[in-house]
């Protein structure tokens, strides 16, 4: 069974579920099977959240084992680092260069946000792509576009799905008012992927 595994991670409220949904819709658009797993509830109050997405001809189960992800898309640097061990050796990481300091690091002396986090990620996953997704989203005039930009970056060498599948998914998921900007954000993502 050939299944492609994509792990999404970030902080509650960053739009991770929306990204996952667009990706899953794109898979459906291509006529593939897809399963996605996510955790709602307690984790949304500023805690870390993740979403597992698995795409293939037929996908029986929904959780990605550690070491089994072909892709990791992270919305925040520390959440990228936290989930890095989900990647396969040849897996690809796409990580937004955003830092959100967790409350706990304010409280423990000397436990501030790791300063060299970008180097650490690149040292552990040399092919990881760190992207200024927030900056690009601001240029586009809507900070919420981060999730689509990251998807675009990931789609670049994602041979399982065509670009048109993503575009159709975006048009399905977003209202006609927002969709054009999303499509633009997707392009910018590809350019930066």
């Amino acid at each position: 069974m050939n299944i492609v595994n994509i792990m999404l991670s970030g902080v509650g409220g960053q739009g991770i579920l929306t990204s996952g949904r667009v990706l899953a819709l794109a898979a459906l658009d291509k006529g593939l099977d897809v399963k996605m797993s996510e955790v709602h509830g307690m984790s949304q109050r500023g805690g870390n959240v993740d979403s597992h997405i698995r795409i293939g001809e037929s996908v029986p189960s929904s959780l990605i084992p550690k070491g089994g992800a072909d892709y990791l898309i992270s919305f925040e640097l520390m959440e990228g680092l936290r989930y890095l061990d989900y990647l396969k050796p040849e897996g690809r990481a796409i990580i937004s260069k955003l830092k959100i300091t967790p409350l706990s690091s304010n409280l423990k002396k000397g436990a501030s946000y790791p300063e060299n986090i970008e180097e650490m990620i690149l040292q552990k996953a040399p092919k990881a792509k760190l992207i200024e997704a927030e900056k690009i989203a601001k240029e586009l005039g809507d900070i919420r576009m981060v999730n689509i930009i990251l998807l675009g970056a990931m789609s670049k060498d994602f041979t399982l799905l065509e670009k048109s599948n993503f575009e159709n998914a975006i048009k399905q998921r977003f209202s006609p008012k927002v969709a054009p900007l999303c499509l633009k954000a997707f392009e910018r993502g590809i350019e930066n992927g």
């Binding site: 902080v11 984790s43 500023g46 070491g67 706990s104 436990a111």
Partner: peptide, 21 residues
């Protein structure tokens, strides 16, 4: 058959517990 190949034991990753808004 799936093995963890990226070692995070030396990465000091803070917990990110949920908090009151």
């Amino acid at each position: 058959s799936t093995k963890v190949t990226i070692d995070l034991s030396d990465a000091k990753i803070n917990q990110r517990p949920p908090t009151l808004c």
